[in-house]
């Protein structure tokens, strides 16, 4: 009798876990992703509109911006590849994910220039009810390349809810065997990617003091700037 009850409880627990496991990552707002590959490039916009009330929060006058991490895979050589020397090694996670910034940028926030302003061609800041929009156009990668990215909306320089993560979004595209871009999957991110993102922040922060001078044409820093601790709202 006891065994039968135990079996029933275990079955319920298993069923319960498979049905209710919180697989998607935290989201406190809505994502809108648009983009169509052109040749081997993928011009796109990724927008997030923060809805604090939707997750029982109030973040008056907060500003949110984007951080992007990427992972690019060459299916010919079965390895991950990079656009420059900087992200490989210390700036990447052990799995090869890295914060997507060009060499010379001192800040890890996707659109933040060294002079402290956001370049509108890369990221327009948003706020509650106002979308923050990331613009990207990856391109030039060779045939049989898989390009994966996770966009993360975070409160930045805000009087409330500062350094809180508001949501995660996954997008990807593939260069086929003729080096023609094909849209792959774009969807809310899932768990494990949020911990990979934390690992990418850690890698950036460990690397930053050793980066050497960062010059982007708008300002100069003796080395890259570490992120503050960022956590889900």
């Amino acid at each position: 009798m006891k065994l039968k009850t135990f079996g029933l409880v275990a079955l319920c627990a298993g069923l319960c876990f498979s049905v209710t496991a919180c697989n998607p990552t935290f989201q406190c707002g809505n994502w809108v992703f648009t983009g169509t590959p052109v040749g081997n490039a993928f011009p796109l916009t990724s927008s997030f509109t923060f809805n604090p009330a939707g997750c029982g929060q109030s973040c008056p006058e907060s500003q949110d911006v984007m951080i992007q991490m990427t992972w690019v895979y060459d299916d010919n050589t079965h390895t991950n590849i990079y656009a420059s020397n900087q992200p490989q090694g210390a700036r990447s996670t052990p799995n090869g994910w890295n914060i997507d910034r060009i060499d010379g940028a001192a800040h890890g926030y996707y659109g933040l220039q060294n002079n402290g302003t956001f370049y509108s061609g890369w990221n327009t800041p948003g706020g509650p009810g106002v979308a923050t929009t990331l613009d990207d156009e990856p391109g030039g990668w060779g045939a049989n390349t898989y390009f994966y990215a996770v966009d993360v909306a975070v409160c930045y320089n805000s009087s409330s809810c500062n350094n809180k993560i508001l949501g995660y979004y996954f997008w990807s595209y593939i260069l086929d065997s003729s080096d023609v871009g094909q849209k792959f999957i774009t969807a809310p991110a899932w768990q494990n990617l949020d911990s990979e993102f934390q690992a990418a922040l850690t890698a950036w922060n460990n690397w930053a003091p050793t980066s050497g001078t960062e010059v982007d044409g708008t300002g100069t820093f003796p080395h890259a700037i570490a992120f503050p601790a960022l956590s889900d709202l």
Binding site: T70, A83, S84, D100, I102, D136, E137, P138, G139, G140
Partner: peptide
Amino acid sequence: LFGSQEAMLSK
């Protein structure tokens, strides 16, 4: 240049 921001800036 190929890449993300690298490709955009070179363009």
